[in-house]
Design a protein around this nucleic acid. Structure first.
Length: 518
DNA sequence: AAAAAAT
């Protein structure tokens, strides 16, 4: 087996690695460090938890060991998508650079410019930044990127998701053509491929097998509930979450609870706290100081439950999380893998619970397709008092539907139709794989409904366009024109229509048509 | 329908 000591790293760097307790490099490190040390571009395809950060940190420090920084001209640059991730990279630099004289600055938003400016002025070897703040410094003329010898892009696919690619391209163009580029991404989306083709020169491609999502170290479980009413979903989910945490008891030493929305992060955190749990929220709308404080407390074991948006889904290295709870199933299947990957790290055992409601069926299918397993369904825990109402029981819905559908079928017309649509949606939500007798009625509708819904939307759009045309010709006579005209009847005073219609309607109509087609 | 990041 290769050892770090065989990798030609700077002795001072090697010393820090040894002190940190590392002997043998991970596959990504073994693959990326040698070419990086030779000054070659590296394209690393690897996910977090594979030792990616050290795979660029160690060779960078080694190559920067000779020479020193000039004022406002950093010698290297690391870009990360989130502030926490950038801060984490910075911590890694501190760790491995402690026996060198290399300096670094962390440029992230949410903190004042003053300290960052001071460091840049003095000259730093390594600049670690989120794209926005870096460009901000650059535009203020405080920063020159022409001295960058090594540039690292970390978590490029996440940058893509977050719309950072234009910024990244711009930053690439601000650095010298001769720079060395180390580029990391978990996946190679077409857009990522394009960037690497443009900005990397004959890169050495290092690909590390995707982390097994069915990793034996993570036990995945899914709890499905059907809240009796839609407006009770959140309440039911919060209660179920509490029951799940309680059922796990002492096994749950600490956990990250993921919500899809920032507002839900706050609500769930508040709710858990009021029920006596040791919980705190983290998401992008919170003050940076608060984010740092919360994350530090969680890392130090002073906080048991971290309620998080996807700001914490990727990259963050939080050791020893016993549980992950998906309060919401993520709408991007990839995120499921990232989220549950927060537990079961470094050979430790972990448990990942996901809460699903019927409206998650689509997401769930995508997730299970991606991870290539059927996530084991488990019963709701005993402490879940709403269980009777919220178990996956289609009956209530079907009874209701049966009653309503007969009354609605006696009617017709566009207004009733819109109500029918929302009813059908509920119906399809409540359609589980059980109850064959009722399934007849349930299955039929969504299957037919799905394509129809699209058609109808198009129809309506066309209708609306027609309406406009009609009105422009001042012949508002169609009853289907929508609630506004129906409500006014045929008695709409002419002046009310005038502001929407310039003096020569025919011409305008033509113009509208032309522009809309062009 | 939403999260992240520059203010």
């Amino acid at each position: 087996m290769t050892k770090f000591s065989e990798l030609n790293l700077d002795p001072n760097v090697l010393k820090a690695v040894a002190e940190a307790g590392y002997e043998a490099p991970t596959p990504i490190q073994e693959g990326a460090i040698p070419p990086a040390l030779e000054g070659k571009d590296v394209l690393g395809i690897a996910q977090t938890g594979t030792g990616k950060t050290a795979s660029f940190t160690l060779p960078m420090l080694t190559r920067l060991a000779t020479g020193r920084a000039r004022a406002r001209m950093p010698r290297s640059l690391v870009l990360a998508p989130t502030r926490e991730l950038a801060a984490q990279v910075a911590e890694n630099f501190d760790l491995y650079a402690k026996h060198t004289k290399l300096t670094k600055a962390l440029l992230i938003g949410g903190v004042s410019f003053g300290e960052q400016d001071k460091l840049i002025d003095r000259g730093v070897d390594v600049l670690i930044a989120t794209p926005g703040r870096l460009l901000d410094h650059f535009e203020r003329g405080k920063l020159l990127l022409t001295g960058v010898q090594i540039m690292v892009v970390d978590e490029a696919d996440r940058m893509l998701d977050m719309g950072f690619i234009p910024d990244i391209e711009r930053i690439f163009q601000l650095t010298p053509f001769t720079r060395q580029t180390l580029f990391f991404s978990a996946t190679m989306a077409p857009e990522i491929e394009r960037i690497t083709n443009t900005f990397l020169h004959a890169p050495v491609r290092v690909e590390v097998a995707r982390q097994a999502t069915t990793s034996e170290t993570i036990t995945q479980k899914l709890v499905e509930i059907v809240p009796p009413r839609k407006d009770q979903t959140a309440k039911a989910k919060r209660e179920l979450l509490r029951a799940l945490i309680q059922a796990e008891g002492e096994a749950c030493t600490n956990a990250i609870i993921f919500c899809n929305r920032k507002s839900d992060v706050d609500i769930v955190a508040k709710s858990l706290k009021s029920h006596g749990f040791d919980a705190a929220p983290i998401h992008g709308d919170l003050e940076q100081s608060q984010r740092t404080k919360t994350l530090d407390a969680f890392r130090d074991g002073k906080l048991q439950l971290l309620i998080a948006s996807d700001v914490a889904a990727r990259g963050l290295d939080i050791p020893a999380v016993s549980h992950v709870f998906n309060y919401d199933l993520p709408s991007h299947a990839e995120d499921y893998v990232h989220r549950i990957g927060r537990t079961g790290r470094a050979g430790r055992l972990g448990t990942a619970y996901s809460i699903a409601t019927p409206s998650d069926d689509k997401y769930l299918a995508a997730i299970e397709h991606l991870v290539k397993i059927t996530i084991p369904r488990v019963e709701v825990p005993e402490g879940f008092t709403l269980s009777e109402a919220t178990l996956r029981e289609p009956k209530k819905y079907d009874e209701k539907e049966g009653g309503r559908s007969s009354s609605s079928s006696s009617r017709s017309g566009s207004r009733t139709r819109s109500r029918t649509r929302s009813r059908d949606r509920d119906e399809s939500l409540a359609a589980p794989v059980v109850e064959p007798v009722l399934a007849e009625a349930v299955v039929e509708t969504p299957v037919v409904e799905a394509p129809k819904r699209e058609e109808r939307r198009d129809e309506r759009r066309e209708e609306r366009r027609d309406d406009r045309r009609e009105r422009d010709r001042s012949r508002p006579r169609d009853r289907d024109t929508g609630p506004v005209v129906v409500g006014m009847g045929d008695h709409v005073p002419d002046f009310l229509l005038r502001p929407f219609r310039p003096s020569k309607p025919a011409t305008v109509t033509e113009e509208v048509e032309e522009t809309s087609e062009g």
